[in-house]
Amino acid sequence: MKPFCFADGKIIPTESATIHPMDLGLIRGYGIFDFFRTVNYQPLFLEHYLDRFITSAERTYLPLPYTRQQLRDIIVELIEKNDLENGGLRMVLSGGVSENHFSPSEGKLFIFAEPLVFPSEEKYQQGIKLLTLEYVRPIADIKTTNYTLPVWHSVNWKRLGAEDVLYHWNGWVSESSRSNFFMVKDGVLHTPDQHILLGITRKHILQVAGQVVIRPISLEEVWEADEAFISSTTKVLLPVTQLDERKIGNGKPGTVTMGILEKFRELEKETVA
């Protein structure tokens, strides 16, 4: 964490931030968050992240007592105070302390500034392994703080040589634990349309990729894919070259995948120019 955060309605030393031990964020795992990057001191795609965060607060019945402009101003000040040239900002809205210890209440807004380390270049060049996991994330279209299953499951990932998981249910794939999923077949890009978070990086990949088929995708199709990759704020795009113990395509990052990564990086440069 960087030295300063936003909490209790003001910017304070990060080490001073506190939350009530009976907050629903702790006792029920109920809250929302969002995370975005800074590039050359500019928050990348900020308005899209604010759209999602504000909508998530409304849909989870959590009061957000700040306007969009107030959030912008806080973020700009945090970037300056933390000298956050290239890093991350995490907005968290907790579930609050409620009378019955269950119903959503007036929570607490935190905004933390963080250093950000991308995956190693080796992972971009050689690809990563995912493990299949039968699961549907609760209210998947909202970015909640409930990551209990993947955090528990992740204890085994390193031992099994995996980067993350690929969720599937009744034979249909959805997403990774912290990323959206794409596959390529016969040169055409496909991505799931159900039980997913509408990722901001995903949104911009759809923009730069051109033709993309958004539809239900079966696990069997993924086994037969030519290429696959995951996308997220903290990775941009990571090629997936292995699923469980089977190779995807020829087991190497494909030309479509790497071409999209290059286009996204160009979009990023144009956005912060």
Rank of each mutant, 00 (worst) to 15 (best):
E134G: 11
S174H: 01
R137P: 14
F53V: 01
I196M: 06
A273D: 11
I214L: 05
V208L: 15
F182V: 07
V236W: 10
H195K: 06
V136S: 10
Y30A: 02
E224V: 11
Y135A: 03
G249P: 05
E220M: 15
A273W: 15
L93G: 05
V155I: 10
M91A: 09
D164A: 12
M91W: 14
L189C: 05
W172L: 15
M258G: 08
Y147D: 07
E163F: 14
H195D: 10
P63T: 06
I32S: 03
P13A: 04
M22L: 13
G187R: 06
P3R: 12
P119N: 03
L84H: 00
F112P: 03
W223G: 05
T18G: 02
T18W: 04
G210N: 07
H204T: 00
L46K: 01
L89F: 05
V213I: 15
R265T: 09
K269C: 04
T241E: 10
V208G: 13
K269Y: 06
Q194W: 12
T241A: 09
S105F: 00
R59F: 01
Y147P: 09
T132C: 13
N180S: 13
F182P: 10
L46N: 01
G88R: 04
Y167R: 03
G210Y: 14
V117G: 09
E99F: 12
H20T: 11
N156L: 13
P104I: 06
V208W: 12
I128D: 03
K123W: 03
V184S: 03
T255N: 11
E134L: 11
I230E: 07
L238H: 04
I111C: 06
L219N: 01
E121R: 12
E268L: 11
E121H: 07
R90Y: 14
D8W: 05
L160E: 15
